[in-house]
Write a protein that binds this DNA or RNA. Sequence first.
DNA 1: TGATGCGTCTTACGCCGTAAGAGAGTCAAG
DNA 2: CTTGACTCTCTTACGGCGTAAGACGCATCA
Lengths: 201, 201
Amino acid sequence: MGKPVGLTRERVLDAALALVDRDGPAKLSMRRLGSELGVEAMTLYHYVPNKDALLDGLVERVISGARPRPVPGSLDWIADFARSLRRELLAHPRVVPLLASRPMNTPGGLDMLEEALAALADIGLTPLESLGLLNTVATFTVGHVLAEVPADSEPEAPDLEKHPRLAQAVADGLGTPSDHEARFERALTAILTGLAPVGER
Amino acid sequence: MGKPVGLTRERVLDAALALVDRDGPAKLSMRRLGSELGVEAMTLYHYVPNKDALLDGLVERVISGARPRPVPGSLDWIADFARSLRRELLAHPRVVPLLASRPMNTPGGLDMLEEALAALADIGLTPLESLGLLNTVATFTVGHVLAEVPADSEPEAPDLEKHPRLAQAVADGLGTPSDHEARFERALTAILTGLAPVGER
DNA sequence: TGATGCGTCTTACGCCGTAAGAGAGTCAAG
DNA sequence: CTTGACTCTCTTACGGCGTAAGACGCATCA
């Protein structure tokens, strides 16, 4: 009893992420996570100060997969960043709701931002304008994925008699993955073309 | 003992909303809500089937304050809808994270949608295109407010030495209410002008 | 009077996060 | 080899949670 079992913060986060991916955030408890790792709940507190920090770790891990790669003199990398952020979020859909109550200003996130700001300064945007652009793109992306992810509680079926146009839209492919993606792409370019000209003067 | 005390589903929701506004969603428990109303926890189950339904009710109440008012032949009402949605959400900031795991397809919401679709059909959009537009505007708005609302856990102070441009942006008013509003307005028009032309052909 | 039914309360179960501290294992210094 | 310190794990316990089951008081109406 009490024999080390080779746990690390990383392994704990791995298991937590897997558990959330599989069963949803509501089913993530310290006891369950412990038993998943062959360990009692309290043992986890050697690797994570409390459950909230564990959730923060999950969120950071998911979004840190989407680093912006600023390319001086261009704006295309912003769209790429949005796409990669969306991809990471869709890879762990059940983590997305956790984002809602957790800001993404981790230390690493701030470094990332500073780097992006430098690239945007090159094309004449002030830091405030740059942050506006980045913030808009990021919040749009999160919001979009949030609506894309099926909620844990299934929605009620619309009364097709009373909602003919809705029925039409569903018949036309509303809610299919390609529909979501197409909408995302169109709105993303709309935002970027609408917002980017700020720097062109 | 057991004397009726004049509760209704409405009064329960009122109290729950007030409690969440005041103390945040984490502090909303059936027992606490009950004691707020001078009643035991189990009594609430005569007005609400379970806690999840209570939260759904909260969300619906908050967003139902923002009904779109379609004006045939125009698109301005969409911007107005987005603004009123933002206003309602900002009036109850701590409810916004709850939106994250709850789709807004209540029966009332569906009627609302059908109505809006009819108005957009007037100017030549297919139901699928219309829903794309509405969905984009709504998700953008929710995402934007989500980022605007201060998280319950305070963020860490950025190292101003290491992040000069960030510091500059903060000095320029980043994060002030008027900054948020200005960003919201600019992005909103960008989206609408970028997406609306779909119907112009 | 008695029956019905509604709104409320009591009790109880199994879960949760986590505080406190005991015990076993490893390792380095004497 | 002994001793002590340190690391990791476990046990126990507390107060809170959502809610299932059902008892109780009261009003209404036959």
